[in-house]
Design a protein around this nucleic acid. Sequence first.
RNA 1: GCAGGGGUACCCGAGCGGUCAAAGGGGCCGGACUUAAGCUCCGGUGGCAAGGCCUUCGUGGGUUCAAAUCCCACCCCCUGCACCA
Length: 951
Amino acid sequence: MRYDHTEIELRWQEIWDSKNVFQAEVDHTKPKFYCLEMFPYPSGNMHMGHVRNYSIGDAMARFQRMMGKNVLYPMGYDSFGMPAENAAKKEQGHPEDVTARNISSIKSDQRRMGYSYDWGRQFATSDVGYYKWNQSMFLDFHDKGLVERRSAPVNWCVDCDTVLANEQVKNNRCWRCGLEVVQRDMSQWFLRMTEYSDELLESLDEIVFPENVKSMQRNWIGRSIGAEIRFPVENSDEEIACFTTRPDTIFGVTFLTLSPEHKLCPILCGGSDWEHGWIELRDECAKLSEFERINLLKEKKGVFLGRYALNPMNGERIPIYAGNFVVAGYGTGAVMAVPGHDERDFEFAKKYGLEIRTVLQNDSDECEVVEPKSAFTGYGSMIGSSKPGLDGLVGEEAKSAVISLLEREGSGVGTTQYRLRDWLLSRQRFWGTPIPMIHCESCGTVPVPREDLPVTLPLDLTFTEDQGGNPLASHEKFCKVKCPECGNEARRETDTMDTFYDSSWYFMRFCDADNSELPFSRKSVDYWMEGGVDLYIGGIEHAVMHLLYARFFTKATRDMEMNSVGEPFGRLVCQGMLNAPAPYCSSCNAEYHVDFESQPCPSCGDTLGTRSAKMSKSLGNTVSPGEMVEKYGADTVRLFILFGANPEAGMEWSDTAIDSNHRHLVSIIDAFEASLSMKKSEGEIDDWLLAKGRINMDRWIASMENVSLREGVMISHFEMLSDWQWYIRRGGDDRDSALSYMSMWAQMIAPVTPHIAEELWMKIGGHDMLSTKELNPTGAKLNDKTLVAEENYLKSVIDTSRNLLTLAQKHSDSPLQNMVIQTAASWAQELAFEAVSLSRQDFNFHEHGMDHIKSHTLFTSSENKGQVMQMWSTITRGSKKKRGKIQTWSDEEKALVSIPDKEIHILENNRQFIATSLGINQVEVYEAGSGEDVGGKAGFALPLEPGLAFI
RNA sequence: GCAGGGGUACCCGAGCGGUCAAAGGGGCCGGACUUAAGCUCCGGUGGCAAGGCCUUCGUGGGUUCAAAUCCCACCCCCUGCACCA
């Protein structure tokens, strides 16, 4: 068949479309399956990373539909955000137009791939119909006390002209533009996500996320359980509060360290000789950005503040230092230093000659170490405590004993610290959801009344490059408003929401996309989201940001009784990187743009090699999906991308591989064509073909259910073809059997290569469309595995023969033309049968095997007892290097061994085939002992491993 | 430094106690078909060898009758977090 992929693909896409086959409705008679890909930002054309993401999702959506699930598989666009705003400035237009254009472009690329989305549910977050619910839910959060406006030092990106959430700052740089972030004090809107810290952390244990994502989230939430201990300052009313995770080391505190910015520093050393040193340290730290402070300050530095504190447990007088390594923003900004049991404190103490005291017994140290070389940071029994009942306690027990003592004496309290901060929501940008608040001089900050929602973005604006700041702030019509409480002139809030807010609930909106009364009905969300989205696919880059916000949002809306879900994503799959070759200089360890290919290294002049690197615009090693689809068709691209690697693994782009995958599809088409021209001519191999088909289908279903798409494709697109080829080779030519095989096969290739599957299904006379057809797998039949085992036996005899033939030929002057196969002697077969029967009764061959055979008639009546003994041993016990056959035979092989003369029948029936396969003239088969022992090969004959001789 | 994931034949990639010289694909080599193939099919792809043996799964040890697979140490790569108390 001429494979006109474009014609076939467009035709089927139109049919699916016109029949609305992917539309999903709530249906309680079927199990649901919610398949979702991470919300795309519409930036123009679809790239290969998208193709990978959606091909995985579509294959799974189609597969689950086939398995009888009610599948929700929607698509929409996360369309607010800076790039559209910047593009609008460039072209002196409005982000709305840029966005509309980009959406239409990516959508048409997606349609060309044949993804089975329910387009009826499509929306974009910049639609008023969507973002008005952002505002309404913001007011709900506000009512629940989860919204807070407060002045706080925030991360400001000068380039993006806006603040950033903590999660959006990487290495002190803006996640979007990479510019270094500066700190500013501003009044900002926050969502109190920290209310949910514990739940966000603890429910991680129950969801199926990849380990690295869980670990990143745990890390980000950063819960440490410990105690806050207050150290009174000597000769003062001040107290220094320190957070520690190791209250069990309280008796080892030999000094305190404050962060240089700590508010007590000037109070403690002000006017003293020590003040100067502190000011110097403080200024030095202030000069450095946080990034430099982390990376450049390898050396711990500190100054004595001239004062002492008292250990509340034992009253000891301990010096107070300021140290450059103490972070002001974590815990209390002060550390109780235990150099004996903390590496960092140890280093500091060594440097400044402070006392190092051991208060925990290190069990691995036999003798008392006088001068410890390092801190012992593990758990050990408390020693040397001045309070009764503590010595001897270990670990958690010791910690809680110290905490209760502190609490009883009023000098400390058990507490928990988190690294997670509240979600800084406001952005000083135009293209986002306006925060529905009004600032009134007399009433303060007043929420927009619900009946006045939505607060819409003005469209009568032209963006220009030289514009600074947020155009909303200078849009008088937008800003001017009457205060809803007092009716006086007031101003609207001009900050818009972080776009991560938009993507924190879109998956619930998809459940009920047309609802004009509510963001989503509880009923719809509870149906589709029960147990979470069943399969959520996207990139690892959202491990903390989007995935954490969405989890928070789902829990918060649950607590507002908008749903009963709790966790949004049941199973998360993070697709791996897509790599492609890029020029690489091994001496500079640097990758270069593809323009440098086959040129000398631009920095050292060496010859450039190539190395695989993440596909990126900056390296220019990208591949355009559009071009590939045009050249090979969507089905080939999908096949390549899914066969190239399992979803979570990284994968390499390869021009030769995609080409070969295309040829492979053509071979599949050829196979289907061949089946159509077959006659009615049933034979044994037909049973084998259908058995193999059924077994393959079972394996395929298991792989697909597990999202092991690569394994699935291997079976559906590769093994099914090679089994078909074997069938042809074995003389298979029966139309009915072939069509039944093809009908299984067409269904199996449908999730990954849906267009060609529909086409082939139609060609073989299938009814309905595969896209709407349920699979109804029959499952492998009882006898199927045995049929396959018989054929495998034949294959293995041929394989062994082929190897031996080449060897034997080297020892022969004339071409070897004939072969003699001697199957194991009947007594050996009987021994095997005996062993198989015994093994089914869990007979212990090691203990009783020898006694058993010695008293057996096969042995006692044998003329060659040595041979019998040796055979028995080979079958049941094996040698040092090889286990007994009884251990290695599969159940099916054991079944074969148990049928008398089975081997000889298989071989007899296929003498001609064996001869042809080996390229020889004649094959003779008999049981060892019943004919001439040609080449002395009878001795090699074991059950299932006949003796082979060539003459 | 901490945490998570890795290191398998020319390349990609499965396997995760015995059936493993290690699936599958790519590449390469040989054969068949063909006027001819860049198409398709069959076979080969560590070494020696009439079916056996030797050497191999990052490196070095160990457990076991048996290790790519389990344990320990080390080296290297990726990802995230980071003087977090």
